[in-house]
C-alpha cells in the first residue's frame, strides 16, 4: 500500500498555488481522505502533488450580509461543530456530521470533497437543497458557479484545468426554516447508498418553500424539483415523494439495485421532509 513516487510542493500562498497548477498537470491535495487511499491503491498516480495544507486564509468560516462564506480547506469537523454553521446553516452541519468518522472529518475538507465529486458523498445533497454557490479561482479568472451547475457527473465537476475551489457560499438560515438530512449509509463504507437533504419554509399554514437534494442515487446529486413543486402547490407528502428519482438513471451495485435505491430515496425523502416540517415553525 505504497503510492507511486511523485513530486511534492507545499506552497504558502494562494497566488503561488495558482501558478503551480496553472498548467493543469499537477494534482491538488487538500485533506487527502479520498486522494491518498486512491494513490495507495494506485487508482490515482499523479506525477506531482500541490499540498494546500500550508496555504493561509482558505479555511475561514464567516458570515457577511446573510451569506456564510466557508473556505475550501475548512474541515468537515469544523463545519459540524462551528457555532456559526450550527446556528445559521444547521443543515450543512448535520450533513457534515454524517461523513466518515471523526478522524476523517478532522482531515477531510469541504473543497476537497466537492472537487472530488464522489456520487455517494453527503455534501452535494445539502448544497443543492441550500442553493449554495461555489467560488472557483484560477491564475486568470474568478467566478461563482451555482451548486446545481457544479456537479456534472460522477467525479466530474465544472472545475476547469488550473482552477481551484476557494469558497462555498451558503445563505444563512432565516430562523424559522425546517431542515433535515436523512442518509441510508452503506454498512461497511459509511458512504450514502442514498442521502436526502430537505429544507422547508412555512407561511400561513402552507409550505411556501421546499428544497430537496438527493445524493447517491445516480451519477451525480440532483434536486427533486417536481417533488418541490408539488409540495409548494399543496400536494400531500406521499404524492410529492412518489416523484423523487423519476426519470433519473439510478446506480446499481452488489448492495443495492437501481429499483431498491429509488425506493430508499423516496422513503428517506419522506423522513427528511417529515423532520423538516416538524422543525419549521
Amino acid at each position: 500500500m505504497i503510492p507511486r513516487e511523485f513530486d511534492y510542493e507545499a506552497p504558502t500562498s494562494l497566488q503561488e498555488t495558482l501558478q503551480l497548477i496553472a498548467s493543469g498537470e499537477r494534482k491538488l491535495l487538500a485533506g487527502g481522505m479520498s486522494l491518498i487511499p486512491m494513490m495507495k491503491l494506485r487508482l490515482a498516480t499523479p506525477d506531482s502533488l500541490v499540498d494546500l495544507g500550508r496555504v493561509p486564509g482558505l479555511n475561514h468560516i464567516v458570515e457577511s450580509s446573510g451569506t456564510l462564506q466557508i473556505g475550501a480547506t475548512a474541515t468537515h469537523h469544523d463545519i459540524e461543530t462551528f457555532p456559526l454553521i450550527r446556528g445559521r446553516c444547521p443543515l450543512l452541519a448535520e450533513a457534515a456530521s454524517h461523513i466518515g468518522d471523526v478522524q476523517v472529518r478532522n482531515r477531510g475538507t469541504i473543497g476537497g470533497s466537492i472537487a472530488h465529486a464522489d456520487p455517494a458523498a453527503d455534501y452535494p445533497a445539502a448544497l443543492l437543497a441550500l442553493e449554495a454557490q461555489i467560488r472557483l479561482v484560477s491564475a486568470s479568472s474568478d467566478r461563482i458557479v451555482p451548486a446545481v451547475e457544479f456537479f456534472l457527473d460522477a467525479f466530474t465537476t465544472a472545475l476547469e484545468p488550473g482552477e481551484i475551489v476557494v469558497e462555498v457560499l451558503v445563505p444563512a438560515e432565516p430562523g424559522a426554516e425546517g431542515y433535515s438530512y436523512e442518509k441510508a449509509p452503506h454498512p461497511a463504507s459509511g458512504f450514502a447508498i442514498v442521502g436526502v437533504a430537505a429544507r422547508i419554509q412555512r407561511s400561513g399554514g402552507k409550505i411556501s418553500l421546499a428544497r430537496i437534494g438527493v445524493t447517491g442515487l445516480g451519477a451525480r446529486a440532483f434536486r427533486a424539483m417536481e417533488a418541490e413543486r408539488l409540495l409548494e402547490s399543496g400536494s400531500s407528502l406521499d404524492q410529492a415523494v412518489a416523484t423523487v428519482g423519476e426519470g433519473e438513471d439510478a446506480n446499481s451495485d452488489l448492495y443495492a439495485s437501481a429499483e431498491y435505491r429509488k425506493h430508499l430515496a423516496r422513503v428517506r425523502a419522506k423522513r427528511a421532509l417529515e423532520v423538516a416540517l416538524r422543525r419549521a415553525s
Binding site: 481522505m33 499540498d51 478532522n106
Partner: peptide, 29 residues
C-alpha cells in the same frame, strides 16, 4: 487495515485524532 477503516494507526496531529496511514509524513512538517 491500511485503508483508513480500522483506526489502529490513530495519532493526534495538532490536537486532532487522525489516521496516520492516510497522511504523508511531509504533511506533518
Amino acid at each position: 487495515c491500511e485503508t483508513s477503516t480500522c483506526g489502529a494507526c490513530t495519532v493526534m496531529l495538532d490536537g486532532k485524532a487522525v489516521k496516520s496511514c492516510t497522511l504523508f509524513a511531509v504533511q506533518a512538517d
